[in-house]
Design a protein around this nucleic acid. Structure first.
Lengths: 201, 201
DNA sequence: GTCTATAGTGCGATAGAC
DNA sequence: GTCTATCGCACTATAGAC
């Protein structure tokens, strides 16, 4: 890597190109899936050329991994931002926010990423790490909430929060499946969330 | 289709070949994923030839769909069998049975199928239909359980059962993600199930 | 019905001009 | 850094012998 020879401004431009490519890839993946999207598809969608793309990514697999990684990190930072606010939302509100915060397109590509992760160790590692990060953030928040709102003792709150976070993550993942494949934001989803909210309140 | 010209015995043999191919495909998908598995891989794994395989399936896509369909139907019939017994299991026991009844390999290919379903309408329809079937079976069972064990009134039980079934399905789907990518049957999973069991008891 | 062999196609990645 | 052009490969699906 000879990054030192590049002018400093180009680092920002490189990041811009990178995002341009990843966003084009995202649109292609929504349309045709990660497996059936060719590099030619991404060049057409991005308006760039194959040669250009291969200066920013070493392979198609790297584009796929980076797209998934960006998607995962957006979800993690969105969660961190939400629990970082002073509002101290309940687990039920947290679940609703998680469910509402993801678009159907994101849910679709997320499912594709899970599928890829079953056979791509790099991607599996990324998914596991980010998912653990989300679960830990949820657990930390639930622990605070259990103490502050529910008046639990600290040690009890800690162990309850761990189990609660794991369940919230499982429901969240199930909601992603539902949003991607069933495409609902219909009444059933609303009652589902409301019902689950009672259960986790 | 000229099925009439075949001797009657061969119908059973055809089904046998079909299963032989699908089981070989399943092993390939576990190893390399649906996208990266070639027909040549399936011929090698099954011990058959390409020509033979194409007399049983019109395309690779059809093999992929059939594999997923078989997997989905196995889960649905397993569920139907479990709730069909006279034991009247609680929702918590149902969840545990659902979680334990799927192998990691099945979970992996299930995730791949979800990913494919995001861009393949045929597969999406199969997944949605089977998932709805499972949810309906769970709802019907929960309704009976709510009346018989919890003493709920019929109309209350019906509406509660619908929400409960949707949540159980979401948790179940989350558990599939977990089993496929995290590969756990560790202590965390046990406490998770036990904890969720309390919640759904 | 099953085999071998191959036709035909589309892909990922690179070379070299600018 | 980006383009055009293309190489070489791997793949799906079929043809024809048995």
């Amino acid at each position: 890597m000879r990054e030192a020879s590049l002018p400093k401004l180009s680092q920002a431009r490189q990041e811009l190109r990178r995002q341009q490519i990843l966003q084009a890839a995202m649109r292609c993946f929504v349309r045709n899936g990660m497996g059936r999207t060719s590099v030619a598809d991404i060049t057409a969608e991005s308006g760039l050329s194959a040669g250009s793309i291969y200066t920013h990514f070493a392979s198609k697999a790297e584009i796929v991994q980076a797209t998934a990684q960006d998607l995962l990190e957006r979800r993690l930072t969105a969660l961190a931002g939400f629990v970082g606010e002073a509002r101290l939302p309940s687990p039920a509100q947290l679940l609703r926010h998680l469910a509402d915060g993801i678009s159907r397109d994101e849910a679709r590509v997320g499912l594709q990423a899970w599928g890829e992760a079953t056979t791509d160790p790099v991607m599996c590692g990324n998914v596991v790490a980010t998912t653990d990060g989300m679960r830990d953030a949820i657990a930390a928040h639930c622990e605070v909430w259990l103490v502050a709102v529910k008046g639990h003792e600290a040690s009890v709150a800690r162990s309850r929060a761990a189990g609660l976070a794991a369940q919230l993550m499982a429901v969240y993942q199930g909601l992603i499946v539902r949003k991607a494949l069933f495409g609902t934001t219909d009444a059933a989803d609303e009652t589902f969330i409301a019902d689950a909210a009672d259960r986790f309140a």
